[in-house]
Design a protein around this nucleic acid. Structure first.
Lengths: 145, 145
DNA sequence: ATAACTAGATATACAACGTATTCAGTTTAA
DNA sequence: TTAAACTGAATACGTTGTATATCTAGTTAT
């Protein structure tokens, strides 16, 4: 199992939008332009952008010359922010919800397992928080060749 | 999205089997006994055990008085071992496979994103590797009350 | 008025998951 | 030898989530 493809696409979208600013384009970027450039279907792109907008990572403008642009500086957007925008802090591991063990021993085991899995998830989230969109941008030049 | 419920169940299963040994029961434990005690459907339990068996974490015995038992000491089984047995090292994040961005800039962005996501996954896996089944067992007493 | 945009809702196909059932083979005990 | 207790394997089914497509409605600039 894995995180949805949409998350990776969302990161790419945010990076693309941030890159536009870095290249000196400060206008709103239309959804369709993003979709075309990144090879992501427009409806999917729109959905991603809506989630990012609701999370306050981008701002949108309706109407002609509308589109999206970054609402916060690229350095202030971490991969974790994007994950939360898409996944709404949904837990990575399913622990207590549906396992109906009988007896105290398995129940205590479950609690211990749950804590360990939580720890692993927090480790991952902490690592994601360490990487900002600006860090990604740093891997290629600001100016197109 | 999340890891399958099956993974959490698998951990619980391994802990249960290890706990049996700790309680002085060295016989093979039948699948059905595990399923009943843990409230996991028998076919699901069987599938989990098959995966664990293929990974060498447990050994199985067919026939009457058959069942499963731990193939390695509980201290040598980490939560990561169990994850790999169930998920076969499938990546947590979908990165390169289906995003068909056009141009070098998005492609380089993708590579950078992929590396960052890999790092996050490795952080999680490292954390899982730090917890053994014995660590889980340590959270409750060896002897039943 | 028209074109270019987002927002929202609905629909569809597909994959994955969890569970159930059936059959076949193995092993032990009586 | 037979029956019971077990695992292994295959198949089926229902549910859920995901990705994509389509359509309608509203907004904004020219």
């Amino acid at each position: 199992m894995s995180y949805s493809l949409t998350y990776s696409q969302a990161v790419l979208v945010v990076v693309y939008v941030a890159d536009k600013i870095r290249q000196g384009f400060y206008d709103y970027v239309p959804t369709r332009a993003i979709a075309t450039s990144l090879g992501i279907p427009a409806p999917t792109t729109a959905k991603i952008l809506q989630a990012l907008g609701r999370a306050g990572l981008i701002e949108t403008r309706e109407g002609a010359k509308g589109g999206v642009r970054l609402a916060v500086p690229a350095a202030d957007v971490s991969l974790r922010d994007i994950l939360d925008a898409l996944e709404h802090k949904r837990p990575l591991f399913q622990t207590h919800a549906h396992v109906r063990a009988k007896g105290e021993r398995p129940t205590r085991a479950q609690a211990a397992i749950g804590r360990a899995l939580d720890g692993a998830e927090q480790a991952m989230r902490a690592e994601l928080a360490r990487t900002s969109v600006e860090d990604i941008l740093a891997h290629f030049p600001a100016r197109p060749r």
